Amino acid sequence: MPEGPRALNIPNFITLGRIILVPLVVWAIAASQMQIAFVLFAVAGLSDAVDGFLAKRFNMTTELGALLDPIADKALLVSIYVALGITGDIPRWLVILVVSRDFMIVGAMIVSWFMDNPMPVKPLMASKLNTVAQVGFAALVLASLGFKFNAWPYDLILMAAVTILTLLSVSLYFIAWVRHVGTPEAS
């Protein structure tokens, strides 16, 4: 039996559970069941904290977990933003901005990989702050819709933070990508 943590361990099962929650949250939003959507989103957030704690505290980190965790996080956030954009509960321009950023980053990584010059995946501080702002904004919107309270002005503040941090994050990733792949030398 190989040594080290098994690929399918408790933290990875928790992460898979978070992935399974994605269509349930989207269904709840589409069905205007915002309390359910908020609770499922909260459960997903709690599961993210629990799987991370277990993986680190009990030395259960795996390559599979390192791949699945950000996929679960992005699948949940992108799906919620798209669903809330379709229902008109958040501005569509914000959805386009958030989703486009992720596509641009993934696209740049794929291009550098095809150029036989893969770029290391290192989250930037601006990206981490962007994720926090995106989660906070989504939670506030879902909570205000589900529990019928006016989120103003906090919704505008968080929406501005998401906008600014998304633009900053994609700009910094683009600069890092250009530096990584290099630019043609001037003749």
Rank of each mutant, 00 (worst) to 15 (best):
S79K: 02
P70T: 03
V25N: 01
S127V: 09
L64Y: 06
L140G: 00
I86Q: 09
P23C: 01
I175Q: 15
F53Q: 06
L77M: 11
T15S: 09
A161Q: 06
L67V: 13
V95A: 06
P120S: 08
V178K: 11
Y154V: 11
A7P: 04
V121L: 14
A143W: 03
V26P: 06
P23W: 04
E3H: 12
W152G: 05
F58M: 07
V95W: 12
L124Q: 07
F137R: 06
L54P: 03
A160V: 13
S187P: 13
T166I: 08
D155A: 11
A83F: 00
A37E: 01
L24S: 04
V99H: 03
L21W: 03
W27T: 09
S171G: 14
A37P: 00
W152P: 04
N12W: 01
S169I: 03
P123D: 09
G85N: 10
A44Q: 00
M109R: 14
R6N: 10
T131G: 10
N117H: 07
M119K: 14
N130E: 10
G52S: 01
V78Y: 08
V141W: 00
D102F: 13
V111N: 12
P91F: 08
L94N: 12
F174W: 15
W113S: 12
V50F: 06
I14N: 02
G85Q: 10
I164A: 15
L140H: 00
P120F: 06
A66D: 14
L68P: 06
A143L: 02
L167G: 07
W93A: 07
G136D: 05
W152Y: 08
F38H: 00
V111G: 08
E3L: 11
R92C: 14
A55L: 11
I90K: 02
S187I: 15
L124I: 11
I90A: 09
V82C: 05
V135Y: 08
A42I: 08
D51L: 07
L8H: 04
L167Q: 05
N12T: 06
S187D: 15
S47M: 07
I86S: 00
P5R: 01
L64S: 13
V132S: 10
P91N: 15
I71N: 10
V39W: 03
L16P: 09
L158A: 09
A44H: 07
Q33E: 14
V121F: 11
Q33A: 13
R101T: 09
W93R: 02
M34L: 04
F13L: 14
G146H: 11
I80M: 11
F137C: 02
L8P: 05
A28M: 03
A7I: 13
L124Y: 06
W177Q: 07
M104S: 14
A186S: 15
V121S: 14
S171K: 04
F137E: 05
V135N: 10
W27R: 09
E3N: 15
Y81F: 06
